[in-house]
Design a binder for these strands. Structure first.
Lengths: 226, 226
DNA sequence: CGCACTCTTGAGGGAGCTCAACATTTGTGG
DNA sequence: CCACAAATGTTGAGCTCCCTCAAGAGTGCG
């Protein structure tokens, strides 16, 4: 359990470190200096914004292979271990933000934020939970059985719902034959198309619809410069 | 494609370019190549995600001095002129993402996304609208009179509410003496503390509360990054 | 002046939150 | 390994808030 040696890594980058965290432990806190970033070796991580009213907003879940924790300056969110977790920590390269992994982390952060916005912006509970399940399945490349290592409370705080509504909604999906549960932490997606229909298809771009909207003239005369 | 791409493809663009857009015009669309970014000289810009169901999510408003439009690869959101707007366009420096303005734009994008998540995560309409007004006031450094160049519909699509609820909520604030309206587009914040109380104080970090939570032991003996 | 657009306001109903109880799972110590 | 405690998950009843439907008022432009 304790044997975390720094020379575990493949690239033999000197400053990388292997870290282990127990379920529930804090990896870093809101406000900490963001002088390093992380890659998930195994386990699951959540990032959380805490608000003064006690309200908690989970901005993302990170699974094996994911990277997280790139910020400019102080951490804008905390990171916590959802399950027992093994990470590699990498120092932030301030002089060279082009570093491959760091850019990947940044993309991942933006992606996660956009997904979160997508989930919160859609109105009703069915849509949010269905979308959440599909996203989890997609990220875990497990369209059959989707592990849900986080608690219902985590899901609720991610989707802007209460734990009760999340639970009720999931039960509803089971009743409708859309999914099956093997314990609360393992979900089998039975009717993918049904879920997609509820989730509002796909979170992908609706470019066609977009291009059909408000095509007014440009001051500058379009690209041609009329 | 939208206006700029054509010019860009011709390669006739030296470096920075001044562009003007009329109220409602599209600056770039979801899916366009993200080969440049922008700074607002005057006016207001909104960034929008469109979903297949017709649902629109505004992810941010950008005012004078703000930068926007940094993405990796294709645009993940559209940008539109809320009012008549003047911009400078800067080419993306793929080889040198450390470029000052570009980093600023990236920070701004993450910041905007987090603010959006914050607004959507808060549950009821009063909280969302109050927080929105305070954020607008703060960004515009105008704690007295806050201009609201965007329509109620824009605000609604930003906050995940309907236009009716936004309007009713604002009217309610007026009735409570929290704000005053000089026309629909100009808002005077009368009772800042009252608004802050409704908005849940401040969107700042609640580190104390956070640190008091689940401080379990670490496998490795110490947290990372702290 | 009339049309179009935006904003405001009202009435009614439904989705989800609150309160409450119970079931299930997990963890701990004897 | 079992007993018990704590945490987590499920389900129900009632009520509130916000969405829907609908109508009217204010504003700008041709």
């Amino acid at each position: 359990m304790q044997g975390l040696s720094a020379e575990f890594q493949r690239g033999s980058i000197p400053q990388d470190t292997i870290l282990k965290f127990r379920k529930g432990e804090i990896i870093f806190s809101q406000g900490d200096p963001g002088d390093c970033w992380f890659e998930v070796i195994s386990g699951t991580v959540r990032t959380c914004h805490f608000h003064v009213d006690g309200h908690r907003q989970l901005t993302g879940f990170f699974y094996q292979g994911d990277v997280f924790g790139v910020e400019y300056g102080a951490r804008d969110a905390a990171a916590e271990a959802v399950t027992n977790t093994i990470l590699t920590r990498r120092p932030a390269l301030n002089g060279d933000p082009d570093s491959l992994g760091q850019n990947r982390a940044l993309e991942r952060a933006l992606d996660s934020a956009n997904q979160c916005i997508f989930l919160l912006g859609r109105r009703n509970a069915n849509e949010r939970v269905a979308a959440f399940l599909l996203i989890a399945a997609k990220r875990l490349s497990a369209l059959g059985s989707v592990p849900l290592p986080m608690t219902r409370g985590d899901i609720a705080d991610h989707l802007g719902l209460t734990i009760h509504t999340v639970s009720r909604t999931i039960s509803g999906f089971v009743r409708q034959g859309l999914i099956e549960l093997e314990g609360p932490q393992l979900c089998r997606l039975v009717d993918l198309d049904g879920l997609r229909a509820i989730a509002g298809e796909e979170m992908g771009v609706a470019i066609d619809k977009l291009r059909a909207m408000q095509p007014r003239r440009s001051f500058t005369g379009q690209g041609a410069g009329a």
